[in-house]
Design a protein around this nucleic acid. Sequence first.
DNA 1: ATAGGGATAATC
DNA 2: GATTATCCCTAT
Length: 850
Amino acid sequence: MSEPSTHTFSFSAPPPSNSTLKQRRVSLALPSSPRLVPACNFRDDTGLTFQSASMPERKGKLRKIADDAAREPLDGGLVIQQKKQRKKWSEEETQMLVTGCNTWGVGNWKAILKDPNLKFDNRSPVDLKDRFRTYFPDAYKEHYPNAKTHLSSKVRSTLPDGRSIFEKTRSKKRRPFTEEEDRALKAGYEKHGTVWAAIVKDPIFQEQNRRSTDLRDRFRNAFPELYQAAGYKPRNSSKKRKEGGVPLPVRAATDDQLTSSSSSHIGPTRKKRASRQGFLRGGTKSVPESATCSEEEESSGGEEDTRTRLLKCPPISTETSPLRDAPSSSEPFAEMDMETIDPLSEPLSIPDFMPSATQSLSELTDSSQSQTWSGLETPVHSSSWSTNAGSPTSSHLSSDYLLNQSPFIRRVPTIGKSAWGAQDWFSANPRLDTSAFSSSGSSFADGLSPASSSPFSFHHLSHGVMDRYDLFPTAFAHDFASETGIGDSHSTFSDPEMFPTSSFRGFTHHSNYAGDLIFGARTHQPQQTYYGPGFGTPGLGLSGMQQPTGLHSIPMHAAPLPGIDEIELASITLNDQVPRDPASVVPEIEVQKDDKETSLTISSTLDLFGIASQNNMDDIVDLTHSTPPATPLDRPMRSHSHVHQHQHHHHHPHGSGRSISVPPSEARLNSARSQASHEHPQPAISTTRSLPFFATISPPAHAGESAHPHNTTVDMAPSATADTWRPSIPPDVHGLPFLDLHYYSGSHAHDGNHHESGSGSADTSRQGYALDLARTNTSLRSAPATSPAYSAVSQALQAAHVLFADTGLVTRYPPGLHHRGASFVSPQDLQLRKANDNKRKRASWDGGTF
DNA sequence: ATAGGGATAATC
DNA sequence: GATTATCCCTAT
């Protein structure tokens, strides 16, 4: 491969020498997706080449093209023109591209192209990529730090503030499922069983741009019993609640329509997921991991979806794409989170309450990953920028826009109305002019209602509520995405190996426990709201994040749970109070990880959970088997094999992944072991606290945002242009410092200053703080800050990670996640150099050419 | 399928 | 003639 094999001629440009030099592709943009490639090999140029006409061609490149255009084809007449004629990009298309990048993430070209809401003039994914590269060179650099060619100094991707117009890569934000959606989901399940692709056809989901995988993710979280009954592995370990009550019954099955799917999606990036490629594989291979498959959302492609998935899973995911957040959940993170509530109590009823409140991130769909660059602060989502920048007039639009949206949602589609039109960045482009785009707005939003309280669960439930989510260390470790589904949890812990001490192995999931606590706490919260924003906001991008950041020592958690974390943290604190028998629990934990402190905390938590324990599963099981879902199919497993645990050893023996497909009966078996349920501890309280906690930190939420946040933000980044790349925090987020943390951590370490700057304490500051923290972790930077808020946060974080630490979750982060760090180029550098170099490169060939 | 380098048609 | 925007090709 490298060289040309064939090439016959080359003309001017000599190819480069070897190929090796470059490292190709690692961009920040996508998370890592592995690609597979077919590699084709050389293309055969021969074919292409052939022809006379051209001449030349060199190996590689041969373009057939032009020259020959003439050639006709054999066929008959028609010529084939091989080359495509040049089509300039219209502003509208460009806008679509931007929207698509914010929805699906930069780099997920195919997904963007497939998005029914976006229109392109017969473009290919590569065309999108090229357009992105040429039109938003500044953004390109950030996302693709490895690129050495096609550089330009133009900057069109940043708002006046300096924030990038693109969200991070990942994009999608999470959009909580609405009650209606939950109802539809349940109804769909009853009709179609686990054929998510069929279910997703319901207009309500289409409107929300949910992907089939999103439905699955939501279903898993919202109706865990049913999910498990259907033979799927519950998220993590599972355990979940159980109780007799389980819900139930529904299922039905059937039918499936299979459908194909529709959409695509892709997920956001972030994650690494192996998935994509997965499919290629032909044979075997692949699979191993499958982890990917699991849940993540990423994969998902809409289209294939379900089916595909099922089939594929084993290998992985579906692949596909990922993105989606918007559509789906791709986010890995998302998964993690989740959970929440359980409906537990009443299965049937579930739908009713389920609503939004419950969901956790995952369900939100987002996809998100966020990667890098985009961080931004965009205050308000997209609109914000528009506002600022653009014409003043435009602002109103945005405002309205914002307002309209539900609190949570916010996200929106990105661009929407806002501003493109007004603004001009485009205009920069000589050729393009500014015109206004019309963008369509999308309407994602809707709202979810947040329920604020979600009372449900907890209290009564006693038993179980929460489940866990896993917190597996393992899982976390890698990426969420992969893990998510997989889980494996139980096994993991169970393994003897893992716990040396063994004190308890019985507990197996210690980690789980921890998780549970946390999550459980969250449940109450109204929270969603909180994160809602964060996620929702397009601009933010944070969603995804994951990353681990630990504060110095502490790792936060890697958990993916962004939103959650917050809550959780808070809750955790509370929890501590409760200790029960620590003894049992603790030991395990310590062994594993050792984090010091943690133990205490954990223990308490564990205790709580411990109480509950097992039992439920059975009940559930029963239910399940009764109605097995349709699914079955193959779904082979999502195997995913190992989850990689990077760090820690444990991972279990069998592949974890397995879970899935189990027939109901079987399922139960499995489940049984793993689960333990627990009760959930107290709940609510924590919640409360948590909120306030955050509150302090951040200002009132949204309100401010919508208003116009931008201003503040601006301040922060004085540097403006320079900063462009710098991460900023989204305004929306306010609530969620944690999230932010993750997000940022990886990458941008360096300049911390930017953002910090202004804020003192104000709201803005909060954001800033968040960042700081993150950085702190990651980057090093220390200093946090002074502000009280900061402190508070820190404490919270520590507490949190304490927990996590035990869990193991926290620790490292998955390698996969952002690579960025490594490759990362500082923005500044990039910019500076840009001008110069860029051109030249091309020049060289240019010259050559003629 | 995407990243990244290259080539060429279209512009400047 | 120098650049740029779009298309192409290939390695991954």
